[in-house]
């Protein structure tokens, strides 16, 4: 293998890794906030992809410009899901863990069913868009522009997330709520509001990923499931609830995927990811950055 092709593999891996990190960030945020694993996370991604496609089909608005609209809509959806479903699931008197699993799992199945009904199982794609089909030639390393755009958005999102969490009142309220949701009322914080905004933020993050991925992936009702699986691995690898762990783990997953696709075979790339996952989890059961 030449140095050139190695650099190519690493670059592709990192680009996809940043997108995986973005998908995982929302999942990890919600888990860290309230110990709920959102098993409908893949369906959130799918909805964001359809929303981007729908806006494009209806108005020919380019996905790049549709992103803010999609992200805003996903924020509202996330907050609504908390207020309409999760809030009630958290009140379960017994077996609360299972109730939460089934609430989000059932939600995912419902969303997928609705998508199959209303959008049909057909594969869709956005045929012509500003970024699609372009590649950037960087000293012989080819970077597909849509992925590059996703990676840049991912970096910006993590910077913004860091700023929100460390520098704003809402961020401090989020940190306090994840520490002890039962205690935030003592300082006048409404935990339901924080939870709803947290779900909104989590869905908005996966919405960013979805609107970019709509440019270069086929869109269909089941598109979320394989990415959701990678996101669960990424979150577990990074340490449940650690957002910056998700970033590091996302990059690792992207790299391992790219390397195993080359070294083994493209159809075996998932095996590399799970092998790394098993090794890390045996050695560090809480993940790379977990401190739970």
């Amino acid at each position: 293998m030449t140095l050139q092709s190695l650099a190519q593999i690493l670059a592709s891996g990192l680009l996809m890794g940043l997108i995986y990190a973005l998908i995982a960030a929302g999942l990890s945020l919600i888990f860290g906030l309230m110990d709920v694993v959102n098993f409908a996370h893949g369906e959130f991604l799918m909805l964001a992809m359809y929303a981007t496609f729908g806006i494009f089909a209806a108005t020919a608005l380019d996905p790049v410009l549709a992103t803010p609209i999609v992200v805003g809509a996903m924020f509202v959806l996330g907050a609504f899901v908390y207020l309409a479903v999760i809030r009630y699931a958290m009140r379960a008197k017994a077996n609360i863990g299972m109730v939460q699993v089934f609430a989000t799992f059932g939600l995912g199945i419902t969303i997928r069913g609705l998508a199959q009904h209303f959008f049909t199982p057909d594969y869709r794609s956005i045929q012509t868009s500003w970024l699609a089909g372009h590649t950037l030639d960087l000293a012989g390393i080819f970077l597909p522009v849509p992925q590059l755009f996703g990676a840049v958005l991912s970096c910006l999102s993590f910077v913004a997330l860091f700023f929100v969490i460390r520098r704003t009142d809402f961020g401090r309220a989020l940190e306090a709520t994840r520490e002890d949701a039962g205690a935030v009322a003592l300082v006048g914080i409404d935990k339901n509001r924080v939870f709803a905004l947290g779900w909104g933020l989590g869905a908005a993050l996966v919405g960013i990923a979805g609107s970019v991925m709509a440019i270069f992936f086929y869109i269909h009702p089941d598109v979320g499931s394989s990415f959701a699986l990678i996101a669960y691995v990424t979150v577990a690898l990074g340490g449940f609830g650690s957002i910056f762990g998700a970033l590091a783990a996302g990059l690792l997953v992207g790299l391992v995927e790219a390397i195993s696709a080359t070294v083994l075979s493209p159809s075996m790339k998932a095996i590399g990811i799970y092998a790394v996952y098993l090794v890390v989890v045996f050695m560090r059961p809480r993940g790379l950055f977990g401190n739970l």
Binding site: D169, R172, A173, E175, A176, E179, A183, V184, V187, I189
Partner: peptide
């Protein structure tokens, strides 16, 4: 007491003035 244990003393105090 219900402090926010992993937050700093300063952050705990700042949260007090959240309203």
């Amino acid at each position: 007491r219900r402090l926010f244990p992993r937050l700093s003393v300063a952050d705990n105090l700042r949260l007090g003035s959240y309203l």
